[in-house]
């Protein structure tokens, strides 16, 4: 597998406040890489930095070997990188259709892309004329993911998609993410261990703005110590 995105010793922050002190990992074409770590460890800032939404203070971000750190967000997005923020980033006053259209790179692909997205999220088809702000939490999450898919992105940065969703919906979300991962690389920030284990291929642990360890998902599934330390799973809890 070729490396689509490489992050090397990334440092970033807000103003003078440094949040990331040295993040390094690479995402390979076709895989789902899960960033795990405690709250405030720097996972969200890592995604925002890749997307150009946070000031980079050092290190490099390479897209297919080409440095892109310091680029404005719109140029990064046009490379084929989609972003689904933790708050979903929906335009609440716009309709579902308008939200989806804004995800498109080329307007003429609307029908083809909608068909593709509706195959994964069939519920959205009947909601097209509804305002995004009136959707339920689960529907909003579907829309946020669907919008990122509309742009034919090669890499999706998805931040805590399970946050605020009922367990039944998390199960559906896992199915959606797996379907999306068939033809898109995903960099996923996720604290929900069962979901991470179900969809992830590899994981990277982020702690105090640094990456401590990366490995295959099987390792995380086996290692109760890792689960307890970085995901807050207590001994004796069933991971799957």
């Amino acid at each position: 597998m070729t490396e689509l995105l490489q992050v090397e010793n990334l440092q970033a922050g807000l103003g003078l406040y440094r949040i990331l002190h040295g993040i390094s990992f690479s995402a390979r074409e076709g895989e789902v890489l899960v960033l795990i770590g405690r709250n405030g460890a720097g996972k969200t800032t890592t995604l925002r930095s890749i997307m150009g939404l946070t000031r980079i203070l050092g290190g490099r971000i390479l897209w297919q070997g080409r440095p892109i750190q310091g680029w404005p967000p719109y140029r990064i997005a046009r490379l084929g990188i989609g972003y689904v923020p933790e708050d979903r980033g929906l335009f609440r006053l716009l309709t579902v259709e308008e939200n989806l259209r804004l995800g498109l790179r080329q307007s003429r692909l609307w029908r083809a892309q909608l068909k593709r997205v509706v195959e994964i999220f069939p519920d959205l088809e009947r909601l097209l004329s509804q305002r995004a702000g009136t959707l339920s939490g689960g529907q909003q999450q579907m829309l946020a993911l669907a919008r990122a898919l509309m742009g034919e992105n090669r890499l999706l940065l998805v931040d805590e998609p399970s946050k605020g969703l009922a367990p039944l919906l998390v199960e559906r979300l896992a199915q959606h993410l797996k379907a999306m991962a068939r033809d898109t690389t995903i960099l996923l920030v996720e604290q929900n261990l069962p979901l991470a284990l179900q969809v992830g291929d590899r994981f990277a642990i982020v702690e105090d703005g640094r990456t401590l360890h990366t490995g295959p998902m099987e390792e995380l599934a086996r290692d109760r110590n890792l689960q307890e330390t970085y995901l807050g799973v207590k001994m004796g809890e069933v991971a799957r």
Binding site: L53, P73, A77, P85, G89, L102, R105, G151
Partner: peptide, 9 residues
């Protein structure tokens, strides 16, 4: 911010 992240200058 989100508009930019969707590719609009």
């Amino acid at each position: 911010e989100m508009v930019q992240a969707l590719g609009a200058d």
